[in-house]
Write a protein that binds this DNA or RNA. Structure first.
Lengths: 145, 145
DNA sequence: GTAACTGCAAAATATTTGCATCCTT
DNA sequence: AAGGATGCAAATATTTTGCAGTTAC
């Protein structure tokens, strides 16, 4: 991120497009997502933001972002819920049908945006609206080092 | 479940095979899983068991069962963790690579044991150990009614 | 100016830990 | 009898709610 002017514009742009008023916390939290390569859990955000804002604000902001289609929640087998930017979701309409990767070594959760979830044949009577894939394994960084 | 004698045998059998001592709570909780068609969350278990045993026991029993490969945790995008029986996992070695289905209407989570997770081509450097698929949609019961 | 957002306090939930007692083997 | 499992109490951690003050538009 070299051009902070542009970045700020972009931030406000994103928020405004979703009919959200542009506030400090929203800008900061959105920035975290834009700058992060991997998915963020609630705890990460509180810390990374440099203990600037309230835990409650983080909860509410994340919820708002999910509702508005700015970020999506990623399922994991342990308790932790992680969030990552959506590519092109709209309010109430998520279509984040891409694969998620969780590294068992560094614990990073990564969106593989370009790998779309496969079609899966379901038994009679079942209707799928959305397929989420989470792959556990070792990420490229951890395999190398 | 018509033959309760056999069922009891089966329960003890399962537990003993995993080197677990056979206790009331374990038998009861295991029974819940054997009798349930859908996955159970911690809360379900506490209730279904007829408030017989302590919340802490439920936590510990679930954890033990997961470790021993009796049940597996199913990832969901909301906070709730659900558990379902494993088919043939062993201590420390889960291979529950089947598809899970979550009904958006009745909220039931179901193991589709016979539908195995697809192979997915990952980017260079990534190594998969395990692929989990969660499909959201409408289950057969809810489509009919 | 008004509606919406934040931050604090506190309530409600959920999860973990320690320890004495009880049960399984 | 010995080791492990349970249940209670209590410590932690997590999430939600209410409300007064502040900010964006």
């Amino acid at each position: 991120m070299t051009d902070s002017g542009n970045t700020t514009l972009r931030l406000s742009e994103i928020l405004r497009r979703k009919n959200l008023s542009v506030t400090d916390s929203r800008r900061k939290i959105l920035t975290l997502f834009l700058e992060s390569k991997d998915a963020l859990a609630h705890g990460n955000i509180e810390k990374k933001a440099g203990e600037k804002f309230d835990r409650v604000t983080v909860y509410r902001t994340l919820q708002t972002f999910v509702e508005k289609g700015i970020i999506h929640a990623i399922p994991t087998s342990d308790n932790s819920v992680r969030y990552a930017l959506c590519r092109d979701c709209t309010e109430g309409h998520h279509h984040d049908d891409h694969v998620h990767f969780v590294c068992g070594n560094c614990a990073k959760t990564i969106c593989l945006d370009d790998i779309v979830s496969p079609k899966i044949d379901l038994p009679k009577g079942y209707h799928a609206s959305n397929v989420q894939v989470v792959i556990n394994g070792t990420c490229s960084d951890c395999l190398v080092s």
